[in-house]
Design a protein around this nucleic acid. Structure first.
Length: 463
RNA sequence: GGCGGCGUGGCCGAGUGGUUUAGGCAGGGGCCUGCAAAGCCCCGUACCCCGGUUCGAAUCCGGGCGCCGCCUCCA
């Protein structure tokens, strides 16, 4: 059984789906006001891994992740560019999906946009106003945090101590500095929607409540996001649901930071690397492996060095796929255990791997097991048992695939001229003309190939 | 001020009261190879500091030092 660290309970708990056989998860998605950065990559990869793992185990997963397409920063970006908000948002959103595809992150089943849920949000705010959980002031409608008795559950501390540390400039009309905007009254030249409490636009914390409840229903299974969303964003979402009398997320999970030289990377510090840059200079799978080798809740350093390290580590796994000429798995769909009955023969290895990942996504332990399988497969084949070696290699590929890490054993980009050089080298070796064979190898290396001798002759691949 | 996290071998990064070791990368030695590459085998005897508990602690407790995060938009 899967166990996860639940932020609301502050401990690792058994995860029992709301409906047997099915799983509903909501992941707070991006505000499309800038290029996606590696912090976004971390959370999307972390929860993509969870989604794939649940699917691998046989659950029918519904994955919802929103796109915030109206917000202060989008308005600011549009103003800077002198273009309409919708255009700017659409452009950054396109970059987002491109980056997600690059990382091998599966598309959500639903990717609702905030601007498509204005009606639902307005209705929700009306209910909150009527019930006395919200109040109007000059610049909008605010949520009264003191009206929810257990406010502070996710923050892990009561309202009073949260208030004591408040750094926000108190708005003299707000009843408490912690109260947050449900609705921001329209300012001149800003996008606006009509509402009974005045034209304006929604505050950030409201959309996720409206969208998650509509698409997943009450008491949906899991809500996740980065650590920084725990408070106040998730706290505020939850407060609204409680005030509405709605059953909300049953489990809350949060991933750790990307750090740069020991300091949190964030868009506001401007110390970020864009995903586009990362994907351009490294194997697209390297970031996933880098993250899998650390725990999802731990902070991690992402630098050119650690990414390069992951690329070299990946090479060892790819070498197994090459050696055993593994059939590639379909990368466009999640790997399901039930589609691979052949791996059940390796009972202990499968059990150990499943136990590791089920243990609060202990992917570092799981990855170590993958490397043990690589050694096992190679050692078996070195010992002459090619069949058993192939079975171990195949198991490795399926288990890695369950986490969204796909091995690539072939390089289809070889051109005819290079292949001819490889053949010529084989011919030279057969003749015993090693000087010529070495010359041809040097030539191939100069062309950017790695040259390996195998029982089947020279094998070349791109370095 | 409140709450939370972290400090592991050259680097990344797990783990946990004691057997033989996480794992990867880098490095050294050996085997294999015409020579290489790939692969296999062997090698580092690490756990911030100071006390304490214990037969035994990197792992538990106390204290200290250092670093980081949240309490403001943020993945």
């Amino acid at each position: 059984m899967l166990r996860l660290h639940d932020s609301a309970q502050g401990r690792v708990v058994d995860v029992v789906p709301r409906v047997e056989g099915r799983f509903s998860m909501y992941v707070c998605g991006p505000t499309v006001d800038n290029v996606p950065h590696i912090g976004h990559g971390r959370f999307t990869l972390a929860w993509d891994v969870l989604r794939r793992w649940l699917t691998f185990g046989g659950l029918d997963v519904t994955y919802v992740s929103n796109v915030t397409d109206i917000d202060d920063k989008i308005i600011a970006a549009a103003a800077r560019a002198g273009r309409p908000e919708v255009e700017v948002a659409a452009e950054y959103e396109a970059m987002w999906w491109e980056a997600m595809a690059g990382l091998g992150v599966l598309r959500p089943d639903h990717a609702p946009h905030a601007t498509a849920y204005i009606g639902q949000m307005v209705a929700m705010i009306e209910v909150l106003l009527a019930a006395g959980h919200a109040y109007r002031i000059d610049d909008g409608v605010y949520f009264d945090t003191s009206s929810v008795p257990d406010y502070g559950l996710l923050a892990g501390q009561p309202l009073d101590s949260l208030r004591a540390g408040t750094r926000v400039e108190p708005n003299d009309q707000k009843r408490s500095p912690l109260d947050f905007a449900l609705w921001k009254a329209a300012k001149p030249d800003e996008p606006r929607w009509d509402a009974p409490f005045g034209a304006g636009r929604p505050g950030w914390h409201t959309e996720c409540v409206a969208m998650s409840l509509e698409l997943l229903g009450e008491n949906f299974d899991l809500h996740s996001g980065g650590q920084d969303l725990k408070f106040p964003h998730h706290e505020n979402e939850r407060a609204q649901a409680v005030a509405l009398g709605k059953g909300f997320s049953r489990y809350w999970v949060h991933n750790g930071w990307v750090e740069v030289e020991g300091v949190k990377m964030s868009s506001s510090l401007n110390n970020f690397t864009s995903l586009t840059d990362l994907l351009a200079r490294a194997d697209q799978r390297a970031y996933r492996l880098l993250l899998l080798r650390a725990h999802y809740r731990a902070p991690i350093e992402v630098t050119p060095e650690t990414v390069a390290d992951a690329e070299r580590a990946l090479e060892r796994l790819d070498a197994v796929a090459r050696r055993f000429r593994l059939e590639p798995l379909d990368e466009s769909i999640p790997v399901r255990r039930s589609d691979h009955p052949e791996i059940e023969a390796a009972g202990d290895d499968v059990r150990a791997f499943v136990a590791a990942v089920d243990d609060d996504l202990d992917t570092p332990r799981a990855v170590a097991l993958l490397y043990d399988l690589a050694t096992k497969a190679n050692a078996l084949a070195d010992g002459g048992d090619t069949e058993a070696g192939h079975a171990a290699a195949h198991l490795l590929a399926v288990l890695a695939g369950s986490l969204g890490l796909f091995l690539r054993g072939t390089d289809a980009t070889l051109d005819a001229a290079s292949s001819a050089l490889a053949s010529a080298r084989d011919e030279a070796r057969r003749r015993g003309d090693f000087a010529e064979a070495d010359r041809l190898r040097d030539e191939l290396v100069t062309l950017g190939f790695v040259v390996e001798d195998t029982a089947a002759g020279t094998r070349i691949r791109r370095a």
